[in-house]
Structure formats: C-alpha cells, structure tokens
Design a protein around this nucleic acid. Structure first.
Lengths: 193, 193
DNA sequence: CAACAACTATACAGATCTGTCTATTCTAGT
DNA sequence: ACTAGAATAGACAGATCTGTATAGTTGTTG
C-alpha cells in the first residue's frame, strides 16, 4: 500500500513499546519515521487510530510468529503446550523486550469501552482460543479450563518479567513452564482415567 | 501529620487508579482533593514524588489487608495459600477494581531504573516473599519455586481480569485457584515422599 | 509537457501540562 | 490577642500536546 503509512505504523509500534502510549507524542513518531504531520493525518484520523493500527499490526505479527514457532517446535499437542513457555523465555531474553503491548495498553486505557482496551481484549481472546484448541487436541477433558490456566501463567510470566527484569535468564518463564507441566499432566491424567 | 497531605495522596491514589499516571494531571488531583497547588508543591517536590507517595501508601495498605485477610481466612499454611485466590476473587468483584496499580505503573514507566518502576518491583518482591514464607510453613520442599508459581498465577489473574472484565464472577480467580490447588498438592506430595 | 496525487515544511490554534511566584487569608499555639 | 506557619487563589512561564491550515515540492503517469 503506502510506504509512508507503513513507516509510521512501524515507528509508532517501536516507540509505544518503549515509552508507552501517552508518553509518546505524535511529533516524536513523525520525526523518527521521517514523515510530515499532514501525511499522518491523511492516513489516520487521530492518534487513537494510529495506536489501533499499531496494535492490529502487532497482534497479527505476534500471533503468527507465536503459532508458527509453537508448531515447528513440537509435533504433538502436549509438546506444543509446553513449547509455549520456551518461546516466552526466548522472548523475555530478547534485548527489546518491553512487556506485552496489549497488557500495557489496557493499563493506560483502563475503560473497558475504550476501543484500545477492546483491541487488547480481543488479542487476548484470540491467543486463549489458540491455546484452547491445543488443549483440546491434547485430549484435555476440560480444554477451556486448562487453556485459561495456561493463559494465566503466560500473562503472569510476562508481567513478572517486565516488572522484575529479565536478568535471571528467563526465570519466570522456567517457573511457568514447571507449573504448566504439572497442570497439563494433571489434566491429561484425568482424561485417561 | 498533615491533613492536606493525606487528602492529596488519597485523591491521587484514586485518580491514578482510574485513569493512569500520565493521563491524570496535577490540576485534576488538586481540584478533586480541594487543595491549592502551592500546598502540594510544599509537600512534594514533583508529580513523581506524589506518585511515589501514593504507591507507598497503596503498598502498605494492600499488603496489610492481604496478609490480615489471608491469616484470618485459614489457620494452616496450606489453607492460607489457597485462600489467596478467594481474596483475589473478592477484589476483582469489587466495583472499583482497576487492576494492580504497580503493574500499571510498570507499564507506564517501563524503564527499570525509574524510581516508580523500582517501587513496583519492590512491592512485588514483598508480596512474593510473603507467599514464600507461607509455602515454607506448608512444608514445600522448594518454597521459592512454589511461591513464584503462585505469584505468576496471581499476577496473571489480575491482568486477565483487568483486560477481559470481571463480569463472569471472578472467573479468572477461580481458574487460578484450581491451578494453585494442583500445584500446591503436587509440591506437598513431593515433600511427603 | 501537463496533470494529478502524494508528500513536505512551517506556522498556527487552542488546550493542557508541570512547576513557580506573589500576595492574601486562615488557623493554631503561646 | 498576637504571631508564625500553613494554606489559599490566581496569574504566569515555558513546554508540549493534538490537530488544522496553507502553500510549495516532489514524483509518476498519460
């Protein structure tokens, strides 16, 4: 489509990740992207729309990479559920880890009716649905419950790492993985019975 | 101490909870608290110091109430670990639930060196230490590991509820509780062996 | 070349933000 | 009742924010 538009969304994504949404002014994004202000307002009606566009891009990219990595890391559903936490560990260890953009967005835009908050909720819903599908394939008798438990561990690990730092190499991811193993084994053992 | 100072911190706490830190201007706080601007700047050098004071108050109150409730809800350490999630459920169901102020602060002030971020990290450290003590009393062979797992579930439940809403009565708290039960039983079973 | 769309630079409006200054009033302790 | 400290209102500076308006510059395509 438009090259300038892509540059804008890309730059916005980076700056929002690093400094948050309110703290990142339009002018900073424009300067970093090398785009004139009027060009931006041709593409986006407001800052809110730019945020939403950035979140859409992030959601698409993150989920695609997440699902692709999970599926190439293990072939069986149970292994894939476990692989989730290895991927989190890699993510946490990356230099540009700034936490989850959607969790951060929900923190800044707390109103449930806010479109930005709604976009975050939708992202989490989609991630959880994917985990649920894996749990179902693995034969969990209550895939929804297992998926929610695993999702809680994921979100907890993300937040904990963001707050307490990721010096201790993916510590939270390891703890989450151990916990997930117990929960998965427990759920699948109940299935066999 | 100073009545006006207390009003300021109290009001700041409420507004920061509802609208976030950057989005809440000094003027809004002053108006809501019924305090003049110069009075505030007599007590606090800057907005950052007001935020830190609000977080200190919150940390003290939240942890005190949390520990008191946990300890009166159950007498044995294992029951207390489980009781954590009943308390979370009550918290989530309260009308003024806005997520965890410290998680939200870390989202807005992402820099680990930021004093506000550091205050959040310290709060989480203290909460986890308390959980660790409970795990130790319960006889967990690796109390640090169990504490981290439980903490991850707590933070996950908080974030998930904030993002996805708490209509479905403390749903995330229930899922977390079920997961915690499995993890605790697993840890303590290993201890007996 | 001509025409049309995309983009740019720059100034601007109007609001809001943090923090300062001054001059006045309230209030509590001796 | 007097005085010192606390709090007040309100204006102000200077920065920054979102969004608009204008006029000029590219670049592509027929």
């Amino acid at each position: 489509m438009s090259k300038k538009r892509d540059q804008l969304v890309e730059t916005a994504l980076e700056l929002f990740s690093q400094h948050g949404y309110h703290a990142t002014g339009i002018d900073k994004i424009l300067e970093a992207a090398g785009v004139a202000k009027m060009t931006m307002y041709k593409h986006f009606r407001s800052k809110e729309e730019l945020i939403l566009a950035a979140l859409r891009l992030r959601d698409e990219r993150w989920r695609n990479q997440f699902m692709r990595s999970v599926e190439q890391q293990a072939k069986d559903p149970r292994g894939r559920l476990m692989a989730i936490f290895d991927l989190l560990g890699q993510w946490f260890a990356s230099a540009d880890f700034c936490g989850c953009l959607f969790i951060n967005a929900s923190a800044e835009f707390g109103d449930l009716a806010d479109p930005i908050h709604a976009a975050s909720a939708e992202h989490k819903r989609l991630v959880m649905k994917y985990v649920r599908d894996l749990a179902e394939q693995a034969g969990a008798p209550e895939p929804g419950v297992l998926a929610e438990q695993i999702t809680l561990l994921m979100e907890g690990a993300i937040v904990h790492t963001q707050i307490c730092g990721h010096d201790n190499k993916a510590c939270a991811a390891l703890a989450a993985k151990r916990a997930a193993k117990v929960l998965i084994d427990h759920a699948l053992a109940a299935a066999v019975r």
